[in-house]
Design a protein around this nucleic acid. Sequence first.
DNA 1: GTGACCGTTTAAACCGGTTTGAAGGGGGGA
DNA 2: TCCCCCCTTCAAACCGGTTTAAACGGTCAC
Lengths: 375, 375
Amino acid sequence: MKTKTTLAHANRAAAAGAARATMLDIARHLGLSKGTVSLALNDAPGVNAETRRRVKEYAQAVRYRPNQLARAIHTGRSQLVAVVLARLTDSFFEEIVQGIENVASRREYDVIVASVSGESAQERARAAESLVDRLIGRQIDGLIGSELTLPESARALLADGGVPTLYLGPEPLPGKTSVTVDHALGGRLAAEHLWDLGHRHVLFVGANERYSRLRLAGARAVFEERGGAAASGVDWCLESRTLSRGALDVEGAYFAVASRLHLRPRGDFTALFCSSDLLAVGACKAILDAGLSIPGDLSVVGYDDLRWTRLLTPSLTSVHQPQVSQGEAAMEILLARIEGGGEGGPSALPGSRLLEPRLVARDSSGPAPPARRPT
Amino acid sequence: MKTKTTLAHANRAAAAGAARATMLDIARHLGLSKGTVSLALNDAPGVNAETRRRVKEYAQAVRYRPNQLARAIHTGRSQLVAVVLARLTDSFFEEIVQGIENVASRREYDVIVASVSGESAQERARAAESLVDRLIGRQIDGLIGSELTLPESARALLADGGVPTLYLGPEPLPGKTSVTVDHALGGRLAAEHLWDLGHRHVLFVGANERYSRLRLAGARAVFEERGGAAASGVDWCLESRTLSRGALDVEGAYFAVASRLHLRPRGDFTALFCSSDLLAVGACKAILDAGLSIPGDLSVVGYDDLRWTRLLTPSLTSVHQPQVSQGEAAMEILLARIEGGGEGGPSALPGSRLLEPRLVARDSSGPAPPARRPT
DNA sequence: GTGACCGTTTAAACCGGTTTGAAGGGGGGA
DNA sequence: TCCCCCCTTCAAACCGGTTTAAACGGTCAC
């Protein structure tokens, strides 16, 4: 223990050539007191202009940098926020992080990223708890997390640790400030696009989870409004058990759609609305392998608008989620909560934001083929 | 100023229900001194077992969490490392970060991510400097950055700040510990793969920058070794001015390859080796648009093996870079440097690591077509 | 009975800042 | 000349930990 820290000190000093200058060093060199130096450097009133100049000049000369840790311990604010997600490599989480970082750096905050992994749910829960413990110990000023990643226990820790927290999830949480993408609207946009192209029967490809249910509901609503109560033209296709996570989505969709295409009669849908671009990729492969053409025989609309799906052949029509904006909005709200009082109760809290997705039409969707007899 | 911090304190206290318990609180409640509590909680010797038990029990009861800031200010170690990259959303940087995070969390370190952006190089340099200043002020224990992102000025700041730093770049830095992927080997692997398929003339698609030059050199070496000095079968195609960054890579490659294909005679290459998957995507589009088939007429090999390129049609043969491993290795080395003495000079430093890429053969590469006359 | 020694606990210094109440010095007004 | 006030600076307390020298109470040996 003792030797360890001693060594560490020695290392740093050795590496730096000399120990980093502190306020006391400056004060001694100029024949001032620590307090005066602090006042001078922080542009606090009540310091002689000439003194201030000398202090700043010397500070500059010795490359003085205030120790944020020491400052933070006093003010109680670390200017650190944490972002906790399931896996960092989840395609669009990186964009959210980028958005958060954009805003944070502008305001001189730094961003800690952490992920929670583990085989079982229980394992992940314990990992999340110990992570949150560590972050609270670091005195983070706030946290942005995905609703699904942080189990109830970890959220409780955050709450009683008094850490302002913002959760990203499928839907706004009642009574809490949140930043959400309007997934029902996303479903509507996809459905309207397909309806306008003449499609009257659409196969929905998605797992039975919250995001997909919202998108499906939005799509169904459009068809009901326009087609009357008679025919709701959107079918449910995949069940959650069919799908697992990540790259497997592609395979899950492939097999689900392939088997559906081989049904006789296969149904009269002329388009597919997939709840993610990965699912759409699998679906497209299945369609092409079945000897059908896109969008000649079947149109496909994806969801997420991942950066690379425009590069597929055919390029994928998709519902774009403004992920960078989501990150930026989340950080802005979090900062408002951290800095902006808020002691006046919920009324003082900044409003939630519901972001609008938009449809990006590309080559995978086209006019519905002329009516054909079910095969 | 005054009212601000006062408010902040009030907020936090209000949000938390009560202020967070400190060592002093525990000490007072148990009729002990602060020092004893510290000793007890840290399992330091010289504390009565019963006392220790009582302290720990009460600490548990009030959810005591040591303030890492206060601890760090004394030990001089923050258990924080920073990762500084150009843009977070750069496809494989996320994997590097994931690797870093994997190792860090295991060792109870946290990771700050930051990016440097700006229009002009000068702007980016200033951004990088102020970022590094802030990070040094935070007493980060180490930093991992990309060579290209941090300008010389920022690196100098880090060096004289005594922050152990590891740079990721195209080649090992002489005299410094580094973690690098062997890009020349990557080029070799691609070239060997194509050679073995019967290709004798390959068009290299890449900008004139360090990574590409290494890959090209590796590829050329293979053809020279196998074909003799007579014919070096790898052509250089794109100049750096042709290409800009990011998604534009795709277009740049598209136009460069398209114009090359329209040349008469167009040359007798039967395969393309692209210095990135994005370039490969553009190249493929150009080839298909020219009415040629892949790999029937031309084979294409990419580089990076981005997660989604296997989903393209045809799925892309590519050189895989072990990015997660690179991140893990970088963090391990950095930790060794931070914790493991090292005062004994360079001999004590952990060794550099050169990671091996591997070729992933997919559908975009196939046997060379029978010899044809130049058109 | 006294001194040495042990295990345990305390008080205080320290880390590097911020903040504040008080003190010192100079100038102006009465 | 004296007093008051303002401007400037200082010394000290504080934040929440770690670390150490010293104190304390008790046991044991001589």
